Simulated assay, not measured.
Amino acid sequence: MIYITKEHWNKHIKDYIFTGCAIRDKNIVYFCLRKDLPYEEASRLWDSEIPTMFLCIYLDTPNDPIDYAKWVGFDGSKVGVCLKPIEQGLLVSRGNDGKTDCMGSGIGWELEKIMPGVTAITNNIKCINGYAYFVGGGRDIYKRIDIGKWLPIKMGLPDGEVNSDMGFRDLDGFSEQDMYAVGGEGDVWHYNGEMWIPCGFPSNEQLSAVLCAPDGYVYIGGEGGSLWRGREFQWEKLYHGGSTILLNQLRWFEDKVWACDDYRLQCWDGNDMVRPMDGDKNVIASGHMDVRDGILVVANSYRVDLYDGTSWHKIVRPYRSEE
């Protein structure tokens, strides 16, 4: 069974591709989508000229499961959620001001500006202790402390020009007083609630994802899909990846680390990265994932899958004209 019907798909999703997902709770999932344009047409446009859709799927209301907003002018958008001060989905654009659309817990929210008058290099939106954190290149970290109010968290971070060997792509935390930010070429920092401290990471490989796991370790996804484990100043490489791309996300589900990139969804089994199983079959999924409230969601260009710890569910599939 596919949750989104052909009618829903034709009306809202048909001409778009999924580029990100974020779970608010087990019944509400937000997505970022971009207009599915032919390469020749897209190559003649600025990224901000390609239409963006901010989509919400309500899994507990199958008769009316979709809410959405469409935008032109959003560039390289990232989707995330916050649970405080209210529960919402967030869509954040790259570029001037870091403009942000908010959805949920009411209607008529105004666009917010994370960095007024400044160019935002938007790489991620993460939810830690219920609050949304903006993660940007150049080591920009901002916390959404209230509706429309974003506070820079930069004590200890040096000012300087943005370059390829520094800058954050991801953030996670055991708490708001124990967070890790990673990116660049071995650019790893720890926040202790007062200031950021460099971790002296033992590699200059590109880093793209971080997970502060319930087992007490910090896991970092590196160049080629490699996996590191440690804390503060002690790190070990668990897995030497052979991929040509970076991981999009690391998440914790079913007491293990899950890793997702544009080609594969995998799990760390303690010795190797392996595909998850659905009974006696490998789960073939890729793209972007999120975990919260007992579910795991994976979205690639044209499909969305959900795993509840027992079964895999088809949420979105593309329909052929004859279906």
Rank of each mutant, 00 (worst) to 15 (best):
T100Y: 07
K99S: 12
N248G: 03
R275Y: 13
I147T: 14
A259M: 06
L246N: 09
Y133M: 06
M179C: 05
S93H: 04
R169G: 05
G225E: 04
E41S: 09
A132C: 07
A181G: 01
F31K: 06
Y58I: 03
H12P: 02
P85E: 05
M277V: 10
K143G: 00
P38E: 11
L296D: 01
L33W: 03
T19V: 14
I284C: 02
D187N: 03
I315M: 11
E110Q: 14
R317T: 11
G137I: 01
F174R: 00
L37Q: 06
I28V: 15
W312H: 00
C21S: 00
E185D: 12
L306K: 11
K237N: 15
G186P: 10
Q266S: 15
G294R: 04
G270H: 12
D64R: 11
D170L: 01
P214I: 06
N248H: 08
F74S: 10
Y58R: 14
Y133H: 14
G287H: 02
V257P: 09
G160K: 12
Y319K: 06
K256R: 15
K70E: 15
G73Q: 11
A181H: 01
Y219S: 01
G294L: 03
S93C: 10
Y239D: 00
D165N: 14
A42L: 07
F134I: 07
D25N: 15
C127M: 14
D293C: 03
E87I: 07
E7S: 12
G108N: 13
W9T: 03
E323Q: 08
I197A: 07
E110F: 13
G193C: 00
R231L: 02
M155W: 08
F74C: 12
E236Y: 01
G222P: 06
K154H: 15
D25G: 00
D36E: 10
H12T: 12
G294Y: 02
N192L: 04
V118Y: 12
G230Q: 01
D25S: 03
F201K: 00
D255N: 13
A132E: 05
R24M: 13
G230D: 09
A299S: 15
N300Q: 11
K281E: 14
L250R: 05
Q177W: 01
D187M: 03
P202I: 08
N192C: 01
N204I: 09
Y191N: 09
P318N: 06
C56G: 06
V297D: 04
A285C: 02
I4M: 12
Y191E: 02
R229V: 11
I145R: 11
G148R: 10
E176R: 12
Q266C: 14
K11A: 15
L45Y: 04
K237W: 06
G294K: 02
C21P: 02
I315P: 03
V135Q: 05
G287A: 09
D64S: 15
V297M: 00
F134Y: 15
G136K: 10
G156V: 03
L306C: 14
F168R: 05
W109N: 13
D305F: 10
A213N: 05
I121P: 00
W189V: 01
L151H: 15
Y131G: 08
M166S: 13
P62A: 04
T310N: 14
I153C: 08
V283H: 02
D67F: 09
D97P: 01
L91K: 10
P51L: 10
D36P: 00
K70S: 14
N124R: 11
